[in-house]
Design a protein around this nucleic acid. Structure first.
Lengths: 228, 228
DNA sequence: CGATTTGACGAACGGTGTTCGTGACGAATA
DNA sequence: TATTCGTCACGAACACCGTTCGTCAAATCG
């Protein structure tokens, strides 16, 4: 068995069933992790999961190789909620809804957003989303090679946007670090930044998100055509 | 003093100079951190820095408020190496060179790449880069508001690209997780992903990088114009 | 010269992922 | 039925991490 698939065989089927305690299982661990991630402080850890499951940290290693494997499982489980749309819809609206759904799901927690680009997403749900994206781009008339690269760039962008969103890096906030820094720049040292300081902090998160998607779509569609 | 600037007054000037040991200083700490980041395992920690400086962890807190502040200082210090080009150059080539330099610097270490989007970059060097980007985009005829949003998206994209690059997520590698996952997908479940499996893993990092920049530039330039 | 500030630092606290050794149990075997 | 065997649970420990507290000595100031 040279390369096992961490996503198959979701239940290792604990043979042991102790009287008053539900047996551990991979699903139970992932579920608890997901619960922690979208709860209180949003932080997840093997030890907290173990405590919540009323056991010790070492017990989890029977069902999960590694923290990184658990993270991959959690990420894919979270991607369950991403809506992919129907085949019949016009591609442009469908694409925007899909990407928005993707970013929204990842924005649920800073931890989740961070997971999204520090672990390469290759689980059933990531594949489902990739399949839908390829379908949409094909309908938009994008070349297969371009489309293959585009889904990479789109996932990456959504993850990055979600991370920014979830980390609370809102430039519009009155005490935001960027606002403080921007307001400190002098007109002589950085005239253009100084002049653009209003624009830099303008727009709601929603507006900037829509603009980002638009830039992405325009760029991808015009890829392959000659420059104007 | 409602909001101090962590980037000013780089030397707090330790009054104390003990005989056989160079006095601690903010610069020494940042320099050591930067050395660790682009060395051995690429991991940096307050404790390792303290050990390297022949002192205890607590001593660093005299010069740095926080780990996050140190990270911001380290990031900006690293951005020193980013080449910004000259005012006279044609904008397209200059933009590409600038972005490539930016991504290259961040790719030097996974830790550095991770710093780049988990801490909002607002230091002297970040401002220097933003100023240059605004200059370039103005020369390209981009609206000021669009340009302001564009520099955000570009920085984000470069950080994400660098992270992927530095983390060693090369889909072309023979034992890469994505290659393994892609090769497992069946033609019935995900026909389009299956059909595109060659395209997904095609291209060198350099080609994909150039393509990404092209998409970004095309998207930004066509922003504001009506859809075709 | 004495008082006061302040940098340096040892020790500790609470947190993290991971490994090791040891049981105890269910299932398969004799 | 009795015995072995593989596997799961788990306590304890290891090696890290960031951060805080209290203390001590040196440098500076009055």
């Amino acid at each position: 068995m040279p390369s096992r698939d961490p996503f198959r065989e979701s239940t290792v089927a604990s043979r042991r069933n102790r009287p008053a305690k539900a047996p551990l299982s991979r699903d139970a661990i992932v579920a608890e992790a997901l619960r922690q991630i979208s709860q209180d402080g949003g932080g997840m850890s093997l030890r907290k999961i173990a405590t919540a499951l009323d056991t010790g940290p070492a017990s989890l290693y029977a069902y999960v190789d590694d923290l990184s494997e658990l993270q991959a499982l959690v990420l894919d489980h979270a991607l369950d909620e991403v809506t992919v749309g129907e085949t019949g819809e016009p591609w442009r609206g469908r694409l925007e809804r899909l990407l928005r759904s993707y970013a929204e799901v990842l924005s649920k927690s800073p931890t989740l957003a961070q997971l999204a680009f520090q672990t390469v997403a290759v689980g059933p749900n990531a594949l489902r989303i990739a399949e839908a994206l390829l379908e949409i781009l094909a309908e938009a008339g994008v070349e297969p090679t371009t489309a293959a690269w585009a889904i990479d760039m789109m996932s990456m962008s959504m993850a990055a946007i979600a991370a920014g969103h979830a980390y609370g890096v809102d430039p519009a906030a009155p005490d935001s670090p960027v606002r403080q820094a921007i307001n400190r720049v002098s007109a002589d040292q950085h005239p253009r930044v100084h002049a653009a300081r209003e624009d830099i902090m303008s727009g709601t998160g929603e507006e900037r998100f829509a603009w980002s998607i638009d830039v992405l779509v325009r760029g991808i569609l015009s890829s392959g055509q000659p420059h104007p």
